[in-house]
């Protein structure tokens, strides 16, 4: 990737993070930690990787994205707004009574949202369904599914993993946002997942591990995924929860809490420098 493009993507990721903070601060509610950890992945997907058109959000042969960890809607909304699906000002209405920016993604009312999510563990199954339908229609489109690491504690994820593999869904690329924190503590303290990569490999996936806050590594992993045939790809993205805001990084307390005015101002200043 050219240096210019990399710098451009990094700048966009900063804007996306500002949008996340604007949404959660103005909405006085939401999930900043996991939104910030997944911001770089979503930035690369919507600004480099995916075949989409903000002017034609329902284009039939577009790529699809399922944000299975639906509580990180501020990240998806911020990326969509910055990409031109709707105005960035609208982010400030997040979670308000008359806003279409619902707490969790709502495909019926928000331009660019491909699937309604929120109840964890269902997005991989839905993504499989999309990938199957694309193959039935001979579309060259791809499906991207983003799950949280805590989320893969849901049993349905592993039912779905069997399906991805059985139907050889090489048009499916899954991210696990592995920030190692969930509401009640670290993944290890809450239940323990042992080796996530080995788990997916044993279910028939091609698996990669990357630094999920490193834009170059995300780009390379996505390139690699497109060369894998007859099996789905999973990218285990090691990330930092709250990435980019010093006092939020690796702090479980920022899973689902809005910053106050002072905290918001500090956050914006940190992102601006």
């Amino acid at each position: 990737m050219e240096k210019n493009e990399l710098e451009k993507l990094k700048d966009i990721a900063v804007k996306v993070r500002k949008g996340i903070l604007n949404a959660v601060y103005n909405g006085k509610s939401g999930h900043p930690g996991g939104s910030l950890s997944v911001a770089d992945i979503l930035t690369v997907l919507y600004f480099k990787e995916m075949n989409i058109d903000p002017k034609n959000p329902k284009m039939q042969d577009r790529d699809r994205l399922v944000l299975s960890k639906g509580h990180c809607s501020p990240a998806l909304y911020s990326v969509l707004a910055n990409r031109g699906f709707f105005g960035v000002e609208e982010l400030k209405t997040f979670r308000n009574l008359n806003s279409r920016l619902q707490g969790h993604p709502d495909m019926k009312n928000i331009p660019g949202v491909d699937m309604t999510t929120g109840s964890l563990g269902q997005g991989l199954s839905v993504s499989n369904g999309m990938a199957i339908a694309m193959k039935l229609d001979n579309l060259n489109s791809r499906v991207y599914c983003i799950m949280g690491d805590g989320e893969i504690e849901e049993g349905q994820v592993w039912e779905a993993a069997m399906t991805s593999s059985k139907y050889k869904l090489d048009n499916l690329c899954v991210f696990v946002d592995n920030n190692n924190l969930q509401i009640d503590g670290t993944i290890g303290d809450v239940i323990g997942l042992n080796n996530i990569k080995e788990k997916f490999v044993s279910f028939g996936f091609y698996a990669l591990e990357i630094d999920g806050n490193d834009i170059e590594q995300i780009v390379e992993a996505l390139e690699k995924a497109k060369t894998i045939k007859d099996k789905p790809t999973v990218i285990i993205a090691k990330t930092v929860k709250g990435k980019g805001i010093s006092y939020m990084e690796n702090q479980v307390g920022w899973h689902g809490k809005a910053p106050n005015e002072e905290e918001f101002n500090i956050a914006i200043k940190e992102l601006t420098k």
Partner: peptide, 16 residues
């Protein structure tokens, strides 16, 4: 895997 089946059906339906 009924939970997987109904969610998969949702994905299939989303493409028409």
């Amino acid at each position: 895997a009924e939970q997987d089946m109904f969610s998969t059906a949702a994905g299939v339906a989303s493409l028409g």
